[in-house]
Amino acid sequence: MRPDPSAPPAAAATPSPALTWLRRALTAVLAASTLISLGSQAWDRSRMALAAQRLGPHAVAAVKILQPMLAEGAGQDETALLAEVNEFFNRRIVFTDDAAAWGQNDYWASPLETLEKGQGDCEDYAIAKYFSLLAAGVPVARLRLVYVRASIGGPGGVSQAHMVLAWYAQPLAEPLILDNLIGEVRPASKRPDLTPVFSFNSEGLWQGTGSTSAGDPVSRLSRWREVIAKARAEGFQ
């Protein structure tokens, strides 16, 4: 039977103040259980765990260690956090070129793809560290992925393309370098084997490591756009 449109609407029961408070508290608890907010950044615990389960057991095992690290990162000294994240990925990833790891000449893996594979090239190390530090609360302005020419074997050695992650305490400060070639986080001046070519993050693209803008990284670098989407689908923000 259709309702009579002329009939007055039934009066809605007004919840008591105690019930209203309880509903709000439960909503807050549920939100906190899945979304961990750290400053201006956040990561989604449930989405990350589900993404790891879809990828496989190596990703699941790694995420169980990674998530507590991210949760504790907001209250940690950033330089100590850099060393911890750098070591976490350097110890778990075996350097392998994309052709051997992915069957492609140039593939940019998401953090959890890299952890599941247990293999990756220099871009994969840098990408995984970048998104993990963002999730742990490091401001995006302090982080840049840097394409460099690396002199392998010291001065006069073989020069090859390479990628590292740079962290800046201040915009014009000398950056600290997170790398898979040398496990220790060092100031850029202590890495004479690296010559920067260009750098980028989620917000900008620069010549070298300077302040000269070279455009929008998301529109200029298609692989970067793709890996940002994959990382967000994995719970990284």
Rank of each mutant, 00 (worst) to 15 (best):
P192F: 09
I152V: 12
R149W: 04
C122F: 13
R142N: 08
V146K: 12
I177Y: 09
S151Q: 09
A141K: 00
I182Q: 11
P192M: 06
I152C: 08
S151T: 09
V185C: 12
S189E: 07
Y130F: 06
G118R: 02
G137M: 03
Q170F: 03
Q160T: 12
R186T: 07
L133H: 12
L181T: 08
I182T: 02
A128L: 13
L134R: 06
L133R: 10
C122L: 02
A188G: 07
G153P: 14
A188C: 09
I127D: 03
G157R: 14
Q119L: 07
A136M: 06
R149T: 14
Q119G: 05
Y147P: 01
E184N: 12
G153Q: 11
A161T: 01
L165F: 01
D121M: 04
Y168E: 07
S132I: 13
D121V: 08
S132Q: 15
G120N: 00
A150R: 14
V146E: 06
G137Y: 07
R144W: 04
R186M: 10
K190M: 13
L176A: 14
R191G: 10
L172Y: 12
I127Q: 06
Y168T: 08
P155R: 07
A169R: 06
K129T: 03
A166F: 01
G183A: 08
V148T: 08
E174A: 11
V158Q: 14
N180K: 09
P175Q: 13
A166W: 00
A169Y: 02
D121F: 06
L172T: 08
M163N: 07
A135Q: 05
A136L: 03
V138A: 05
P192W: 14
S132H: 15
K129P: 01
P175H: 06
E184F: 10
E174M: 03
S151G: 05
G137S: 11
S189P: 13
A136N: 02
L133P: 04
L178P: 01
V140G: 00
W167Y: 15
A166P: 00
V146Y: 13
Y168C: 09
P155Q: 11
N180A: 13
W167L: 05
G153M: 04
V140W: 00
G183I: 07
S159C: 06
Q119S: 11
F131T: 09
A141W: 00
V164W: 03
A141N: 01
L181W: 13
L172V: 04
R142H: 15
P175F: 05
R142Y: 00
A150S: 10
V138G: 02
G120V: 03
D179L: 10
D124L: 13
Q119T: 12
G183D: 03
A136C: 01
L143Y: 00
G118E: 05
A136Y: 07
A173F: 14
R142Q: 13
P192R: 10
A126S: 06
G156L: 05
A150I: 06
A166R: 00
G154S: 11
P187E: 02
P139D: 06
R149F: 04
A188W: 10
Y168S: 09
L172C: 02
D121E: 07
V185T: 11
D124S: 04
V158F: 08
I152D: 11
F131Q: 10
M163S: 03
Y125F: 13
R191F: 12
